[in-house]
Amino acid sequence: MARKRKGRPVSGWLIIDKPAGMGSTDVVSKCRWLLQAQKAGHAGTLDPAATGLLAVAFGEATKTIPYVTDALKCYRFTVRFGAATTTDDAEGEVLETSDSRPSDADIEAALAPFRGQISQVPPAFSAVKVAGERAYDLARDGEVVELEARPLWVERLELVERPDPGSAVLEMVCGKGGYVRSIARDLGRALGCLGHVTALRRVWSGPFDLEDAVTIAEIEALEGPEAREAQLLPLETSLEDLPQVTVPESSLVKLRNGNAASVIASGVEFGSECWASHKGVPVAIGRYMGGEFHPARVFVAE
């Protein structure tokens, strides 16, 4: 017999403006405690030094996390030229320095190869697993970590501002698995002046924007878990890019039990991934197969 989870059966999304110095899992644990929730997770890790949007899912919303992590995300970050570090950010030790500083035109020209489908080697200090161990654990132990290049889609990468000759503010929209620190490192190399990240902020992720975000302090200031739960966005917010089908009363039990059933659809293509709802309440995620919906993940009825 499965052990019953402790806490309240809370479902939905809490969009947090993560502060610097706090890990993503620490944010999730804090939010789960504040709402006294049974289950929580996040859609996309931010480094402890990074700030900005962290989407925290509760309860049934955790089943939709992949639809946020797989979506495009936007980062604004500052690159400091003239030094390469062990971590590719300001927290690492300096490995090499350069007196060279790029012009705006130099940067604009160098950005072009970083757009579209690129190949990117993650930082040595990253959560990538090597033979079952995290790369950052190996790197901290002094081991030389050789990571393989990974594909990354970069939708947009633009120069936003030059605060001073030694730094540049960039904005990038990319797909899943992008490392901003790698972009800064590789851009510095391409410019011949070296570089690392000194500030990083996630502006939006999939359907979520910083305008939707609250701080942990703001959540803490609310009186009790029920008041904090009122800050949640609906589960289906994360599914806005998927088509929706309607579940008639006659199909509801079958779908709730994980079986294919007839649905009502308009303009949904055969084989499309979509989500099904009954009276506005999400029932399942699955595929529309010509009049019939085949569920892959079923949401527990409240």
Rank of each mutant, 00 (worst) to 15 (best):
G178H: 04
R76T: 06
L53F: 06
V197M: 12
V144W: 10
V214D: 03
F77L: 12
V245S: 05
I118H: 13
E223D: 15
A84M: 08
V154F: 08
R76S: 08
V169A: 13
G21E: 03
P234K: 12
P295S: 12
D17V: 08
T97N: 08
L222Q: 07
V281K: 07
L95N: 02
Q231N: 11
E220R: 10
P66H: 09
R8T: 15
T25D: 15
E133R: 15
Q231M: 11
E93D: 12
A109I: 09
G7P: 11
S103D: 01
A105C: 03
E143S: 08
T246Q: 14
P165L: 14
D164P: 04
P19T: 07
V263Y: 00
R181H: 14
E240C: 15
E155C: 15
R189T: 01
A37F: 07
V281N: 05
K30G: 07
F270H: 13
L157E: 05
R115H: 06
V27Q: 02
T97F: 07
R32M: 11
L194A: 00
L252I: 00
G166K: 09
T64W: 02
A276I: 01
P165V: 10
G82A: 09
A124S: 13
R189V: 05
G23E: 08
A37I: 09
A127C: 08
S250R: 05
K176G: 05
I118R: 02
L222T: 01
K39Y: 10
K73A: 01
L54P: 03
N257K: 02
E302C: 07
C193G: 01
R115G: 10
T237I: 06
D141Y: 04
E226S: 14
V10E: 12
D106S: 09
D88E: 13
L239A: 03
L53H: 06
G59M: 10
L239C: 07
L232W: 03
E302K: 10
F293P: 00
E220K: 14
R140V: 12
S250L: 05
A112I: 11
D99L: 08
R5W: 13
E158G: 03
V144S: 14
C274M: 06
M22D: 00
I219G: 02
L157V: 08
A49P: 04
R80F: 07
P243M: 06
G116M: 13
A284C: 03
A105I: 01
C74Q: 13
A217F: 09
A37N: 11
W153Y: 13
V10G: 13
F208T: 00
I216D: 01
C174M: 07
R80N: 09
